[in-house]
Design a protein around this nucleic acid. Structure first.
Lengths: 178, 178
DNA sequence: AATTGATTGACAGTATACTTACAATATGGC
DNA sequence: GCCATATTGTAAGTATACTGTCAATCAATT
């Protein structure tokens, strides 16, 4: 972060504030891009009535049938409480079912229904289109650079988020790789 | 987006899904980074009880005293409805006041209070620290590259979001630049 | 076996972020 | 001056995204 003024002298006066304090902040730019990403996803996928979060949950349940809610939250770095509502909605749409785990009465295991597998299969091209659209304005080389830096940054900052990604830990017992 | 399988033959079978459908999607990475950015902001600024959105609103009201809610939403690309709640909270904390506009009975103009100006001045170093922390894991050259690409991408995708940034339009009548 | 501590799913509460709708008010064309 | 249209703030409804807390359950230690 560059200093907010070019004044070389310490001063007791309030620092003059400009909109740069917002517009050039990485946090603001990430918020904008997330906003844009969600808007494009919803637009491309409106025929399917699935949100980005619901899509990520469906993908994960598809690749890890029988996963429980807590592990699912760790695998996609969602908040556990938030995920409860997401699961309810997917269940209401009959895209997933919950079965009690026989060996642990606390746990409910998650499985795709036929309708869930079908919608997941059908929505894929639209998801890809949305993902492509948000990167489209950049030159291909710049897209690669951005994606690479973003992947690094998310990985290196993993512990900073309240809900760190714990893919490996969470999936140990399932004997599957994501 | 690369094809999801290497199968050269068309097939009626469902496409096999892997977690790459989530982890390598730019939209997922933007969501993660936003999550991380908010977490770092809250952590660094917890002494001030301000959220990132409330901070951005305060900065804008500070640089554009007498702005109204609709214009404010355009300047920081917030949803107008969402902003209503944000303004209420800032008002409850007595960081801003709303005064009816004399020439238009619909409009309420926004101004910082002394307490608002004070908290904005005081929180700045913590905000800068949070912004620096989220980029810290990258090498300085990579930080610059990422920030540049991100700025370009947000700008070029502006119209894609439901609430495009309209800084200039919104501020024409105020005779100020942000 | 009984207690301690951790885990799981659920719930309440706050804060974004969007949708649609609506009443009050302004504005422009006529 | 009047009327269709647009704007402003507000509200209700949905969906994330987090904070807590809690009861039920399980596991680990004594």
């Amino acid at each position: 972060m560059p200093p907010r003024t070019s004044s070389p002298m310490p001063s007791s006066k309030p620092t003059p504030v400009t909109m740069d304090a917002v517009y050039t902040a990485p946090g603001y730019l990430f918020r904008r891009m997330q906003q844009i990403a969600v808007a494009l996803f919803i637009e491309e996928c409106k025929a399917f009535d699935l949100t980005p979060v619901q899509y990520a949950a469906l993908v994960t349940i598809s690749t890890h049938p029988g996963i429980d809610a807590t592990r699912l939250s760790a695998v996609i770095a969602f908040d556990r409480s938030t995920l409860g509502n997401v699961i309810e909605r997917l269940q209401a749409k009959e895209y997933i079912v919950r079965k009690p785990a026989p060996e642990d009465k606390r746990v409910k295991l998650l499985y795709l229904t036929k309708a869930g597998a079908s919608v997941l299969n059908d929505i894929m091209p639209s998801v890809d289109k949305a993902q492509a659209r948000m990167m489209q304005p950049l030159k291909p080389a710049d897209r690669k650079t951005l994606l690479s830096l973003l992947t690094q940054l998310v990985d290196l900052n993993n512990e900073a988020s309240r809900v760190p990604l714990r893919a490996e830990d969470a999936l140990e017992h399932l004997g599957r790789s994501g």
